[in-house]
Amino acid sequence: MKTNYLFLNTHELIQSCLKGDPKAEKQLFCTFAGRVLALCKRYCRKSEDARDLMQECFIHVFDRLPYYNPKKGVFEAWLHRVCTNLVLQYLRKQKVTITLTFPTILPEFGEVIEADEMNKISDEAILESIWELPNGYREIVNLYIFEGLKHKEIANYLNISEGTSRSQYTRAKKLLKTILQEKASKKTPNYG
């Protein structure tokens, strides 16, 4: 009987992948590629780099699939963790985040955005705002907000102290609010 891979759940897909079924691998890829690409895009500004990294992630995921233990958590969480680790490794290799760069010339904090104004801004504009954050700030914001890491974990990943992670995050958040406010009012922030 022909298997309709669209109707297989994640567990069944993984079992088929482990048996080396290429159709199952493709279905697994199609199911999660969009999410992984979104993750990669948060760290790679160039679209080509993000796609490249996404493919690297899936090569890694398919290689390590035998080590996934369903008893320890859902596949999505495992996938997210594996991809985050790989993205960080990639960034280390690129020597982007292993030495954090914090701005020496600090921007002036203007008006900050309020919660009810957030719905005026598109998703793309928000991501663009995050990209406008200086190096270091951006990584901390991404890791804390989107990857859900705690400051201690971020400190370990980035080789900085927990206190630095906290203080940088506070400043990054404030700066992000300023940038978002600028976006909302179609203005650009003024870096001193």
Partner: peptide
Amino acid sequence: LRNRFDGQEAPMDMEAEWAAL
């Protein structure tokens, strides 16, 4: 931000990306 981007998927050409992979 978490609510907004949770489970967000980036659009792509699946067939082309799968072939490249």
